[in-house]
Design a protein around this nucleic acid. Structure first.
Lengths: 155, 155
DNA sequence: ATCCTGAAGTCAACATAGTTGACATGAGGA
DNA sequence: TCCTCATGTCAACTATGTTGACTTCAGGAT
């Protein structure tokens, strides 16, 4: 799962615009890339990658989540969850224990080490957002949120 | 490369927020997903996927682009480009011919069929953006662009 | 005790999307 | 003819996902 990482990331290509919204379309692409670039590099240094971070991120915000719920939230199959989850357990970034009442399900929690990595990875993503928000000011940030909410809820 | 597609996509999970910017972070994730969802479904129906669309998108905006330049813009290896590019050539969505002067390089162009698919796929992505922009109005849209530019150029 | 069920775990086969490395081909230019 | 550049191709590998088919673990019901 580890990759050597390449740090510097892919300058924006200058392409002719066939539509007014082509610029926006490309910004979404480079925006996503830009937000995740440093976090991915950090994760790669830890021998982890995006799927691991997604797991850590969700468990951090839903302590004692059951594995089945995690599968639902991540939107992947239990087989796909299996490998990254086991790696996180082996590396003691997560713990799992049977629920006290519902012994059928297992509850996941971050260890201190898991928390640290989750925080550092997420921090790198938020840092990119924070700097962008600071540059455009509160009204621009509010506009961004409004647009993104509209897009996210367009399904 | 074709997948059966699942159409409806993954409602936003409600997670506790550990940081003010967690909401923004999640919006970027779901925003990217939301923008590409319908386009991906359309592409899957055509037996194509995201890498094919990226090729079609770039060639549409850089007619007569050489393969080497395409590799640079996409940021992948020529071996990775090989399969999707050959599929597009076989399906006659792209043509390649030697350059008149620089016989060493081959120039890529979209066929009419390739143009149609590129337009329909990109249209689906822009449609999501357009509706979001319409919902928030011009100032919000401008804010969105500003933030995304700041993020995209943060590398 | 036995059977059923729900949650989790595991194994195999496959698809997709990418990587490096090595080498072949095609077309000028010296 | 030889060199070089752009392209093409083969092989092996990694990573992330999919389905399908089982198994195991833990209660609950009869």
């Amino acid at each position: 799962m580890a990759k050597t990482s390449q740090a510097a990331g892919l300058h924006r290509a200058s392409l002719a615009k066939l539509d007014d919204l082509d610029a926006a379309l490309e910004l979404m692409y480079y925006g996503w890339r830009g937000m995740t670039l440093e976090a991915d590099a950090y994760l790669a240094k830890q021998g982890l990658s995006r799927p691991h971070h997604r797991i850590l991120y969700v468990v951090a915000r839903r302590p004692d989540i059951a594995i089945g719920s995690l599968i639902d939230i991540l939107g992947i199959s239990k087989q796909a969850l299996n490998r990254p989850l086991n790696l996180l357990l082996e590396r003691k970034l997560l713990t799992s224990k049977r629920s006290p009442e519902q012994h059928r399900s297992k509850l996941l929690r971050l260890t201190a080490a898991g928390q640290r990595i989750e925080q550092r990875a997420s921090h790198r993503e938020r840092k990119v957002l924070r700097e962008a928000f600071d540059r455009v000011g509160a009204p621009g940030a509010a506009g961004w949120m409004g647009v993104m909410e509209a897009i996210a809820d367009s399904n």
